[in-house]
Simulated scan of single mutants.
Amino acid sequence: MTSIAFYGSSLLSSYWNGAATYYRGILRALAARGYDITFYEPDAFDRQKHRDIDPPDWCRVVVYAATPEGLRAAAAEAAQAGIVIKASGVGYEDDRLLAEVMAAARPGALRIFWDVDAPATLAELRDNPGHPLRQVLADLDLVLTYGGGDPVVAAYRTLGARACVPVYNALDTSTHFPVSPDPRFAADLAFLGNRLPDREARVQQFLFAPARHLPQMRFLLGGSGWDDAGLPDNLRLLGHVRTADHNAFNCSPRMVLNIARDSMAAVGFSPATRVFEAAGAGACLITDYWEGIELFFKPGEEILVARDGQDVVDHLAAITPEEARQIGQRALARVRRDHSYDQRAAEADTLFRRHAPGPAILQGVAP
């Protein structure tokens, strides 16, 4: 059986870790295809105190100490795997982890850098010609990205990557699906996202300003870091929302809002995990505009698009609860048909086979 050593931020906790759903969906589906996966995550940022899943039966999870010794021991285990994957944004000594993991990989192993925040990573690489990742790109077999489309692919190829392919976010149908509305999450519009510097101005524009413009409506904000943000009176703050509550959060409001970070919106072709989570729950989703939306959903029929806060106000004023329900149902049908993690795992499997240094590393995996 082909083994994968995957080094990422956290599989067990979504606390300050937006990649958790992506990791879980991709790796669960790869395991179903016959891969033997070990996920290595550092004990950092209090994530182990905020676990929202138990260690799964489809993946072995190794939590290592966020110390030089802990990192070194975890990296050394890469020598046991046929496929070695280092993700971006692990959160503890990323550059050192990259160097030690790839140095430990055995000859003939498939070596992959999986970028879950390509706009941020590429900005770092452009600003620092001596960046450790930039120095090893040409030696890696493959770069996979969470999104970004042709602009990201071209940027990575210019920087020396042999190959770069987006493997987009998707829906994990086993964890995200319609449920009964929950009064805790009743609202006209709800947004779920942590407070981040490169998204805050857009949250002010697309959520706070519409809430102030529509004082008769109810707004909901989930996520960490917003306590001192000066919220409108009709916007209720929830704090961190566990993954187990995401379905209810998406099913209960009349509409759900997606707000991209500045860098993601600028690059485009980067649908957030929450877009597919919301669609998978049958939510009527309003998203701020970013290039490439139409590759994933049909604007106006399966998703509503807002170019500014006034567009959000207009959607809230115009769309009835029944119309919102119909838009959500069309989004649900589209995401189940075209955007499941089973499909993404099939894409990743094809890429592993195409770029593997030799056929031996893929023994025991169903084609």
Rank of each mutant, 00 (worst) to 15 (best):
Ser9Lys: 01
Leu12Pro: 00
Asn17Pro: 03
Thr21Ala: 10
Arg33Ser: 07
Arg33Ile: 11
Phe39Val: 01
Tyr40Glu: 02
Phe45Met: 06
Phe45Gly: 07
Arg51Asn: 00
Asp54Thr: 05
Arg60Asp: 13
Val63Gly: 00
Leu71Cys: 13
Ala73Phe: 14
Ala75His: 09
Ala78Met: 04
Ala78Ile: 07
Gly82Lys: 04
Ile85Cys: 13
Gly89Gln: 04
Gly89Asp: 04
Leu97Trp: 04
Leu98Gly: 14
Ala99Leu: 11
Ala103His: 11
Ala104Ser: 15
Ala109Val: 02
Arg111Asp: 05
Asp115Asn: 10
Ala118Lys: 10
His131Ile: 08
His131Trp: 12
Leu133Trp: 08
Arg134His: 11
Arg134Phe: 07
Asp139Glu: 08
Leu144Pro: 06
Leu159Lys: 02
Gly160His: 02
Gly160Glu: 02
Pro181Gln: 06
Asp182Trp: 14
Asp182Thr: 12
Pro183Lys: 05
Arg184Cys: 14
Ala187Ile: 12
Asp188Ser: 12
Leu189Met: 07
Phe191Cys: 13
Glu200Asn: 15
Val203Cys: 09
Phe206Pro: 05
Phe206Ile: 07
Pro210Ile: 01
Leu214Ser: 13
Gln216Ala: 15
Arg218Pro: 15
Leu220Gln: 12
Leu220Asn: 13
Gly222Arg: 01
Trp226Gly: 02
Pro232Cys: 10
Arg236Lys: 15
Leu237His: 12
Val241Asn: 01
Ala244His: 00
Asp245Gly: 03
Cys251Glu: 05
Val256Cys: 08
Ala260Asp: 14
Met264Thr: 06
Met264Cys: 12
Ala272Cys: 12
Phe276Lys: 00
Ala278His: 03
Gly282Arg: 10
Leu285His: 02
Leu285Ile: 09
Trp290Thr: 09
Pro299His: 06
Gly300Cys: 08
Glu301Ser: 12
Glu302His: 03
Glu302Pro: 00
Val305Leu: 11
Gln310Pro: 15
His315Ile: 03
Thr320Gln: 05
Glu322Gly: 09
Ala324Glu: 01
Leu332Arg: 07
Ala333Val: 11
Val335Ile: 04
Arg336Tyr: 04
His339Cys: 11
His339Trp: 11
Asp342Leu: 08
Ala348Trp: 13
Ala360Asp: 15
Leu362Cys: 03
Gln363Val: 02
Gln363Arg: 04
Gln363Pro: 00
Gln363Lys: 05
Gly364Lys: 05
Pro367Phe: 06
